[in-house]
């Protein structure tokens, strides 16, 4: 299998006046295509920072992130936008759905932004809502959906532009155990069936053994479990 993501000597340091806070320390990682990589770690260990760097939402202090041939860390604003649009799908801990857009509109939005015609975007969104078993709630607003349903919509949204890499930042962190299980199961099965690479970060150590690879992030240092 080919390499889809490579991280080399990645550092992220936040400066707070005279004090430097090293959040990520010399991280190196290689992720293969269509694999599910689980990264666990305690709160504040740098999991979200790592995903934000890979997703191009933040820039590293030092090191390289290469995703699908793109040197993410050195991309300009326009190229970063294209990268986020075409190569990455985000799922956040908080569902981050547009509150006055229906479930269907939320799912189709990234495709619409990418310039996909409305009808085609709608068709794709309906297909994905069908896959997450929410097609009957397509016209409901986020406020009318349960926490689990909102995250399912977020999962569907992350897949609409068919990105090769899905970045999931504690997508079940805000859900009860039953719903968390349902969402995780759904996400893993969709990733497998759509042949996507998943980088899943969580503080939940019970995920050990679920993915193809399990890594632990501790005090900014990444190691194999």
């Amino acid at each position: 299998m080919s390499e889809v993501l490579r991280i080399e000597g990645l550092w992220k340091v936040y400066s707070n006046g005279s004090e430097d806070l090293e959040v990520l320390k010399d991280i190196s990682l290689s992720v293969e295509e269509n694999s599910v990589v689980i990264i666990t770690g305690e709160s504040g260990s740098g999991k979200s920072t790592l995903l934000n760097l890979v997703g191009g939402l933040d820039s590293p202090t030092k090191g390289e992130i290469i995703s699908h041939g793109n040197k993410v860390s050195s991309l300009g604003e326009d190229d970063l936008t294209t990268y986020r649009r075409n190569h990455v799908g985000f799922i956040f801990q908080f569902h981050f759905l547009l509150k006055d857009f229906t479930a269907l509109e939320n799912v189709m939005l990234p495709a619409y932004i990418a310039g996909v015609p409305k009808k085609e975007a709608q068709r794709r969104a309906l297909d994905l809502l069908e896959r997450v078993r929410l097609v009957q709630r397509k016209n409901h607003y986020p406020a009318e959906l349960s926490g689990g349903e909102r995250q399912k919509v977020a999962v569907a949204r992350s897949l609409i532009n068919d990105p090769p890499l899905i970045l999931a930042d504690e997508p079940t962190g805000n859900l009860d155990e039953v719903n968390a299980g349902i969402v995780k199961e759904l996400l893993f099965s969709l990733v497998r069936s759509y042949k996507k690479t998943l980088l899943f970060v969580s503080h939940d150590i019970s995920l050990k053994g679920v993915g193809d690879r399990h890594l632990v992030l501790e005090h900014g240092v990444l190691r194999e479990s």
Binding site: G55, L57, E77, D78, T81, T82, R84, R85, N86, F90, F92, F96, L97, L98, K99, L109, P110, I113, A114, R157, N161
Partner: peptide
């Protein structure tokens, strides 16, 4: 602001 974050993470350009 939250919507802007969603749009940006979904690939919307700052100009958009």
């Amino acid at each position: 602001r939250q919507d802007i974050v969603i749009l940006k993470s979904a690939g919307a350009d700052p100009r958009d």
